[in-house]
């Protein structure tokens, strides 16, 4: 197994773990962490792909893509954390309430029946 394959396989595994965590964990901060893990997995894949030929200088384009991706990811993380703070301020917890506002009207309707 080449160095690249090793990194690529690991990145895929990390991505899957992140994906599982993102869906399975209810706490919003954990979800946000999971997103960052998934993002890192993709960055790992790109960085390792940039230097598949160890003798040549690395491909700069994936590096640039990763830098861009990190900035985007930071921006999203910052906003997501701020939004979590607001949810915490409004609902008193850092979880998503499990019933939907748009549906709750329906539910009352059914109960009345």
């Amino acid at each position: 197994m080449s160095q690249f394959s090793l990194y690529a396989v690991i990145s895929m595994l990390i991505f899957s773990i992140g994906l599982y965590g993102f869906i399975a964990h209810a706490h919003l901060v954990r979800k946000i962490l999971a997103v960052n893990i998934m993002g890192s997995a993709i960055f790992l894949l790109l960085i390792s792909a940039a230097r598949r030929d160890p003798t040549a200088p690395p491909d700069p384009v994936p590096h640039a893509m990763v830098l861009t991706g990190i900035v985007v990811s930071v921006s999203f993380t910052a906003f997501a954390l701020a939004l979590t703070r607001r949810i915490y301020a409004e609902t008193g917890q850092a979880y998503l309430p499990e019933t939907e506002p748009a549906i709750s009207a329906q539910k009352q309707d059914i109960v009345q029946k």
Binding site: S5, V9, M12, L13, S16, R52, P57, D59
Partner: peptide, 28 residues
């Protein structure tokens, strides 16, 4: 279901990673 799917999906991704070309194809 989630656990099963995650495992299957992860394995599929690993297989995909192994199928990636080994030679550099980038824009360097």
């Amino acid at each position: 279901i989630l656990v099963v799917c995650s495992v299957v999906f992860g394995l599929g991704l690993v297989w995909t990673a192994l199928a990636l070309p080994q030679e550099a194809t980038g824009l360097a």
